[in-house]
């Protein structure tokens, strides 16, 4: 099963591409009460310690496939399910130092059955995470 917390304890790590650390990753549980088609995901704002990335920047891995925010918005065949975490990759050259970090996320999702004036729905979560 998944962590009750939206930010999952497992999965936080630096991302290595061809021997170079290009960023870090973590996993999120779907904060909404149903799973969603990828096109209904607006993005995720990320704060880590005193660093900040806007909603458009992080990349998403859903069901084993990698997407930019813009790609997700026009997608037709990928879902973020209740029982499958999303992996978020944040570009950050050199990665993060090992240790405890304060991670905050604001996950923006769209619900077409809620009047457009009140959209997107934004789900906030934060916790301390430990990078090995």
């Amino acid at each position: 099963m998944l962590d009750r917390h939206i930010i999952q304890n497992r999965g936080i790590r630096n991302v290595d591409a061809d021997g170079e650390i290009i960023g870090f990753q973590f996993r999120l549980r779907m904060p909404n009460y149903r799973g969603l088609w990828g096109s209904l995901i607006e993005g995720v704002e990320v704060r880590l310690d005193d660093l900040y990335w806007d909603r458009e920047t992080p990349r998403w891995t859903l069901q084993g496939r990698d997407f930019s925010c813009a790609e997700l918005r026009t997608s037709t065949d990928v879902r973020w399910q209740l029982d499958e975490p999303a992996t978020i990759t944040v570009p950050h050259r050199g990665g993060l130092p090992a240790g405890v970090h304060h991670l905050k996320v604001d996950i923006a999702l769209r619900a077409p059955y809620i009047p457009a004036e009140f959209q997107p729905s934004v789900f906030h979560a934060e916790r301390k995470v430990t990078l090995l």
């Binding site: 149903r34 096109s39 209904l40 918005r73 026009t74 077409p112």
Partner: peptide, 12 residues
């Protein structure tokens, strides 16, 4: 069985 017809499935 709860289902959805997401009429605004995309922004475009």
């Amino acid at each position: 069985y709860g289902s959805w017809i997401d009429s605004r499935m995309w922004q475009h």
